[in-house]
Design a binder for these strands. Sequence first.
DNA 1: GTGAAAGCGCTAACAA
DNA 2: TTGTTAGCGCTTTCAC
Lengths: 355, 355
Amino acid sequence: MARRRQAVTIKHVAADAGVSLQTVSRVVNKETGVRPEMMQRVQASIDKLGYVPSIAAQRMGGSRSYLILALNDRERTIADWRARQGTDWFDQMMLGGMLTCAEHGYRLIVELVDTHSDHIERELLAAIAALQPDGVILTPPHSGNPLIINLLEAHGISFARIGSLTDGPGIRLIMDDTRAARIATEHLLDLGHRRIGFIAGPAEYELSAWRVDGWRAAMQAAGLATDDLLAIGDFSHASGRAAASELLTLNEPPTAIIASNDQMTLATLELARERTLAVPGDLSLISFDDTPIIRLAHPSLTAIVQPIAEVTALAVNLIIAAHVNGPTTATPVTVPARMTVRESTASIFGGKGNT
Amino acid sequence: MARRRQAVTIKHVAADAGVSLQTVSRVVNKETGVRPEMMQRVQASIDKLGYVPSIAAQRMGGSRSYLILALNDRERTIADWRARQGTDWFDQMMLGGMLTCAEHGYRLIVELVDTHSDHIERELLAAIAALQPDGVILTPPHSGNPLIINLLEAHGISFARIGSLTDGPGIRLIMDDTRAARIATEHLLDLGHRRIGFIAGPAEYELSAWRVDGWRAAMQAAGLATDDLLAIGDFSHASGRAAASELLTLNEPPTAIIASNDQMTLATLELARERTLAVPGDLSLISFDDTPIIRLAHPSLTAIVQPIAEVTALAVNLIIAAHVNGPTTATPVTVPARMTVRESTASIFGGKGNT
DNA sequence: GTGAAAGCGCTAACAA
DNA sequence: TTGTTAGCGCTTTCAC
């Protein structure tokens, strides 16, 4: 292959403007202490020649790499893509993360790693060494992984942890799962439900516990017991079915169920149908993901809408800000989730929930 | 911010192994002409120290950047993400592209650009200057854009053009849209349909015409006219509705319609329902995208499954191969599409199509 | 087969 | 305020 060189380098600009490299560099990086007329002259040359600095060279010079790494769970992400069921966590992350990176002249690079793997440390170190990212975005279930967190901290890389509240370094961002679960539960309480079951996600995800907390808090505030109404799944369809079965075979089965993701909610819907339970007539249902599969189900499902794009955009902004201002506040940032009421929730007295 | 340096560099490895930098470089890049024992010794040091070369430095040294750029349509991609309707073109591209890049030690970076924009040239040049990618993947509707193609060619960057057959440089890959349309049409012909309507995509996409060709060819082979049975949309729901309306208000309306994407098919389904046409009883329907929205529709829709992941993976492989072997064959590569028969196609004699 | 030297494009540190 | 120098980590070129 032909050895490709930069078409226009800082040298060309310097020569064209009749200044030193350093002055061009100062203008490019918007440093203070350059006379306005000088700045204009250099900027004119930059525009004229269409100069854009090479991020590889910038990095080599000891500056930023303008690269942010998003770390996603390998197995889950690939499985979602293969299933083609419209799970859009990844897409929403790109929407928020990529576009925000672009606004700041950064690029988002995605890396898939197994949280469970024992060579995760090696994988991460390799990615860091190869890319030298300025920041890393950790998504669940990586966000609370001490191995990852400590490694990034040791390397002095600023990073955001989406969906984790465990102590430690890193910018923590959450979508207020507890409150979201409470809102969902209260919606059902308002509709007259008293036996409200909850299908939790796996303990590996911190947010699983938060959602249970929100549900439990709302139930307790209403003076209701939750003893037998909690079932645990792992976000898979099969586990959702098992959990739903558990709840629906209780002596006093719930009249409403909240499930922690779309697959488990859908599994519950299917099981209900098989048992000739009408939804929402006999059983109200709320999902914790607002995916296409949920919207198009029959009936369409009431769901918690997680602000994934917003939270990722915020993560990028905070990472970049940290690069400029140094370490940021240690207080977790909260972006509230919403609830979209559809056809799957109804009053136990026979009324519709979405009227 | 603290100036971050590489933890382990080629120097450390060279010192540890007691050889020159150059020898380490040779081992890393698997060059020939290194004695096996030497190679082993160096490799041992690399493994021991966990050395991974910096791609920025590799690039600066005049070698590859190990970066491949995927160029997607800005407006459409963002609209799809915002709509949250499960359009998974992007996901499938990542599935095929990102994973294949990773296999070769490359990274995929996504860039969104407007094909229509007059500053597309500037945007592309900026991305090239900043990243110095080893290759570029062009997706529709960029794949046939002469401005883009010529620019990449001029810069000596190898690139793949997915979904374009227009002459010019670049590796051309198609999913055989013509054949896919023919298969869909023949399926309907087999079911006894004679009046088969087709809703095409916008001319901006080359594949729009190919699909029309396939449909027309199959119709003509069956000795059927297509005069009034073609309607044109722009992939949007609204345009699909208009096109469907056009077809259904014909004096002799079609008994089956093939639409060029999921949104237009769905719009047709909705319109049919409004006009109390039973699907597939009164109208059979085939979509040209196998998205969640299509699978979950009622009835579930027969659809062409486009091998987006496969074709993207192939694109990456060919780009990387071109880097090693120099320019590749100019013959377009074809990856065949499949059809999944579901509930929306039935015999005009009353039988079901999916039995 | 292996090593030494030069340079990629840029920035940090220092000098003027 | 501006310019000069050195060096980032790697690969290429050319000696040995």
